[in-house]
Simulated assay, not measured.
Amino acid sequence: MNYWLVKSEPFKYSWEKFNQDGRTFWDGVRNFQARNNLRAMQEGDLVLFYHSNEGKEIVGIAKVVKEAYQDPTTEDPNWVVVDLSPVESLKKPVTLEQIKADEQLKDIGLVRQGRLSVMGLKREEFDRIIELGS
């Protein structure tokens, strides 16, 4: 299993809206590194959901329920989406400030490549964030 983090601005697509929908395709990725991460996602992989800009916090866990396919919002074959479903909300959101202050998370992509919208996580990083959010 692989672990990932996706970012969304809450006013565009919030964790609450995602839970209401129950499933969504993750579209709008127009960065090749983030696209390659989408392509690498496998069914069953776990994904942390991060509210960017407003809140700047990880709020929940999702899972990949369909692997990469053509982004239906564009005809450009360079871009793909995956389908995600919510798994559970974190008891306490984990803020970017907490992540930056945590020695175990100092090398996480969220800190090193803050603008990347889809990134991989090491299992230890994923587990530590879950621990902080419990």
Rank of each mutant, 00 (worst) to 15 (best):
S89R: 11
K66P: 00
S89D: 06
T95L: 03
V6N: 03
L105C: 04
N36T: 01
Q42C: 06
P10I: 11
R23G: 07
V64A: 02
F32S: 06
F32W: 12
R112K: 15
V118M: 10
L116K: 15
E97N: 08
P93D: 03
I58P: 09
N31W: 04
R112Q: 14
V87F: 02
A62D: 05
T73Q: 11
D127M: 02
I58W: 07
V82P: 06
Q104T: 05
G55T: 10
K63D: 00
D76F: 04
A68R: 07
Y69Q: 01
R30V: 07
V118I: 13
R35S: 08
I130Q: 06
E57W: 00
S8T: 14
V87E: 07
T24M: 15
M41A: 03
V81N: 13
S8L: 10
V80I: 05
L121H: 11
D127K: 09
I108M: 12
A34M: 10
T24S: 13
A62G: 15
V118E: 06
E124A: 14
D127W: 00
R30C: 06
R123H: 00
K106S: 05
Q104Y: 07
P10N: 10
M1I: 00
P77R: 15
F11A: 14
A40N: 05
R128S: 01
Q98K: 11
N31L: 04
E88K: 15
G120H: 07
G120R: 14
Y13N: 06
D27E: 13
F18S: 08
E97T: 12
L5T: 06
E75H: 12
P77V: 14
G133A: 10
H51L: 13
G114Q: 15
L48W: 03
L5D: 05
V6G: 02
R39L: 10
R123V: 00
Y13Q: 07
Q113G: 02
D107K: 15
Y13C: 08
L84C: 06
I130N: 00
I58E: 08
K12D: 15
T24H: 10
S14V: 09
N19P: 00
Q113S: 13
E125G: 03
S8E: 05
L48M: 13
R23H: 07
R128I: 02
W15D: 02
L121F: 09
K92Y: 08
S14L: 12
Q42H: 12
L38T: 07
